[in-house]
């Protein structure tokens, strides 16, 4: 059975089904990360005065700043890959999607460097409550990056065959994947100051 309303808007919602679906999923994601942000507030309030800030000093701000810029860039290339399809330029779509994937790899490599350097210094989630929430939040965010890479990789590779048969449906798929990717970027925009700068 074919999925209904992938290209045409459903009359009662005024939306294609996949868009409503992804936004409902993202709403649930807000609550998932929200629960952990809430845990962060709880742990910060419960820690001795200034301790949370002190424990956070172990983190590498320049590397995290670089990662923020990488993730923002990947968001731009993601939206550009969608815009390229809108302009019927499949080659540019592939190029921008490729850069998006490269940025994701770069982000994970930097995250790996950060994690391993912490481990080398004997810093683990069990070290203190700050590190516990730091590893949980960035770990969950990292898993989201990997999830996005799988979807984006599929859409750039085997999934892109759809462009020849159903270009509009394919363009919508890129937009939906983009919405998820921008959300992952948005979460990082909050994680970065909360964990590294405060």
């Amino acid at each position: 059975m074919e999925i209904p309303y992938t290209v045409e808007e459903r009359p009662d919602t005024g939306l294609i089904n996949s868009k409503l679906g992804i936004w409902l999923f993202l709403a649930s994601e807000v609550m998932l990360f929200g629960g952990l942000f809430s845990a962060y507030v709880f742990l910060r309030l419960g820690a001795p005065d200034g301790a949370f800030h002190e424990w956070g000093q172990e983190l590498n701000v320049p590397l995290a700043t670089l990662n923020t810029l990488i993730l923002i860039s990947s968001s731009v290339t993601m939206v550009m890959s969608w815009a390229s399809l809108k302009m019927n330029d499949f080659k540019k779509f592939k190029m921008y999607m490729g850069i998006t994937l490269l940025c994701s790899v770069g982000f994970l490599v930097i995250k790996y460097i950060e994690y391993t350097s912490k481990f080398h210094h004997g810093i683990f989630p069990s070290t203190n409550t700050f590190m516990a929430i730091y590893f949980t939040l960035t770990g969950l965010h990292g898993l989201h990056i990997i999830g996005g890479m799988i979807v984006n990789g599929f859409l750039m590779g085997p999934g892109s065959k759809m462009w020849k048969t159903e270009p509009e449906h394919f363009t919508n798929r890129i937009e939906i994947a983009g919405l998820y990717w921008h959300f992952v970027d948005l979460v990082w925009i909050f994680l970065f100051p909360v964990l590294y700068l405060l």
Binding site: V30, M31, G34, G35, F37, S38, V41, L45
Partner: peptide, 13 residues
């Protein structure tokens, strides 16, 4: 969603 999110943020306090 944001109403629930803010409630969630105030629970710890």
């Amino acid at each position: 969603t944001f109403v629930f999110f803010f409630i969630l943020m105030f629970i710890p306090t």
